[in-house]
Design a protein around this nucleic acid. Structure first.
Lengths: 347, 347
DNA sequence: ACTTGACATGCAACCGGTTGCATGGAAATC
DNA sequence: GATTTCCATGCAACCGGTTGCATGTCAAGT
């Protein structure tokens, strides 16, 4: 045991990675053919128990580990599935990712995660890059055009989350049910003019929510105005506040909780009290009660979405068929403390 | 153009993935040997420009895409690097991941992201699984034992973030500088008893912060008590509040911002006003000004950490050497609104 | 005109597994 | 005891590229 700086110098040059114990070496050691070693690992039932034993023992002592790449090359299977999201930093996605990972694990698949930063080019690139190394891809809230998605789907099994492309298996979180409840709730509280703070232009969810709000409002004598927040982020929300107030609305529904949180901050900054002067509802319910005041929001089903999408993909892989599945998950309003009757001034 | 349900039935069975245009087919089409096709892509300078042209054209029309797996098998290189984090849902990590991804991109590497859910077993498994498909791994805030880390480092290039294992390249965010400032700040405000709300037991950062607080306090006539929060999360922080108050302390430093946010909520629940009655400081500054009141926190350097770790790894891969590098990134206190002089009662 | 060298290209082995088919010996059948 | 059947194992081709070396060609050098 040499210690400290001296020994370190040696370790720099001496570390040699324990490279490549191959199937042939194991075969030699066990006195069998390479194919038998292969079978000992993949189809032990084909061999006599003693042979399997001998091979496994030899493999063990040599420290043999099957080479994933070689195996993938000959079988065409690598046991990985890709999961691509637009923005890991958005709290909507991590629970979805975790759920997907868990589900993949159950079938011994491994998740490769990609982050596109909301950039379609990056998304395209990532899909291409993943294509060779995964057996299928789950595209979450894709920002790609329908054509690109179709093109990719022609190359490898694809499942979409929150994107509705005909003929491609997809899992949709239907926020319209929850959004409808939100509008009804605000209408009941007496609000007659509501702003929708919209999200990314090419987001399917955004389109869906905007439509749902309009349709809900049309039956309720409620006016809707849309104010764009560009991105789904705190800053975007905060910047949108002036425009929101300029409409004269008394309540807002934001594209997501992050945006809502930004709006909340912007309102506080302008001394507009929530919910006293202004009511606010988010979407996705990712911030739960951690804002102040606790944000009323539309529930999300991201965990189920992740789980279902992955299991759907795995099912496709195993049955080798394409199912034109279309799962829809309903949502509802989660009431907290950012909404109040118009003109109400405390107890 | 047949529409709707009918055509769908066909598409189910008819879709055949455009599988496997190989190098041989391109070679035939272009009238050259397989090796020339290979060279046209990897070392075009070895071929005459016209030949390259012809081959590329043939490849283009056939829709040839080099098979990543096959290439990896013969070269031993796959151009991927693994990045493993304990919890994507923790806002500390996404910026780090993004920065790493960006840096990897610059050298045309692709990041495979793994999430361990704070579980060492899962981490071990993930490293093993990645080992065959990536050229190196960045382990962020590893929860593994030193031995396991060393064992893995013997198998493939490894860079650590926020983990200090001798002989293994590592990038450390030194929160002690910032934490020291935090304690000094609280001491100046008159606080004489401070609680450290600790984080995960096997977290290097946690150990570092606890030590730094103790050492900073010892020179300042300040008492430190430690209250465990078990996990780095909102809930853990919130649950720790009773214990925190029971110590009689007037201020706390939390392991991270998430924990601090939980503490903030717990205090509000118990009608303890912040900063009036109690001062609170977080770590990692991930929530910025989005809490209420805006959280004073110790800055993080996660973006640099991600960038440096990845570039370090790539450097190792290219030079094929192991550098016993140890980058340390300093931090500082970011003042906001959750600290106040003891006994101060407003202007 | 003949050697020399440079350069473009082809040949074939190799990366490390998997798998269809052949083979040989033991057990089962008649 | 001869024939059939079955099972364990080996052989060799294959997955789709890469790469060291050999070969052939053509231009420059003498």
């Amino acid at each position: 045991m040499v210690s400290g700086a001296n020994s370190r110098k040696y370790s720099e040059t001496m570390i040699k990675r324990a490279k490549g114990v191959t199937i042939s070496q194991v075969a030699d050691a066990a006195g069998v053919a390479r194919s038998s070693v292969s079978r000992a690992f993949t189809r032990p039932d084909m061999l006599s128990p003693e042979t399997v034993d001998r091979i496994l023992k030899a493999a063990e002592t040599l420290g043999y580990v099957p080479n994933h790449t070689a195996r993938a090359l000959s079988t065409g299977r690598h046991g990985n599935i890709g999961l691509i999201v637009p923005d890991i930093a958005n709290p909507f996605f991590p629970p979805l990712i975790q759920a997907g990972q868990l589900e993949a694990d159950r079938s011994d698949f491994c998740i490769f995660l990609g982050n596109t930063e909301e950039n379609p080019k990056q998304e395209d690139k990532l899909v291409g890059r993943f294509a060779g190394q995964v057996e299928g891809i789950v595209l979450v809230s894709s920002r790609l055009s329908d054509e690109r998605i179709r093109a990719h789907a022609a190359q490898l099994p694809l499942v979409l989350i929150n994107r509705d492309v005909d003929g491609i298996p997809r899992v949709l979180i239907d926020s319209s049910s929850g959004v409808r409840q939100a509008v009804e709730h605000l209408a009941e509280l007496g609000h007659r003019k509501i702003v929708y703070v919209s999200g990314p232009a090419n987001s399917w969810s955004n389109k869906q929510r905007r439509t749902a709000i309009r349709s809900a409002a049309s039956g309720l004598k409620v006016d809707i105005e849309t104010v764009p927040a560009v991105l789904a982020s705190y800053t975007s929300g905060r910047n949108a506040v002036s425009a929101i107030l300029a409409t004269g609305a008394t309540a807002a529904v934001a594209f997501d909780d992050l945006t809502a949180q930004g709006v909340l901050a912007g309102l506080a900054e302008k001394k507009v009290s929530v919910p006293g002067d202004f009511s606010l509802i988010g979407c996705d319910d990712v911030l739960g009660a951690v804002t102040y005041p606790a944000l009323t929001s539309v529930s999300n089903r991201s965990v189920e979405a992740g789980r279902v999408a992955v299991s759907l993909l795995i099912e496709m892989l195993q049955s080798n068929g394409i199912r034109d599945a279309r799962y829809v998950l309903q949502t509802h309003l989660v009431m907290r403390e950012t909404t109040m009757a118009l003109g109400y001034r405390g107890p």
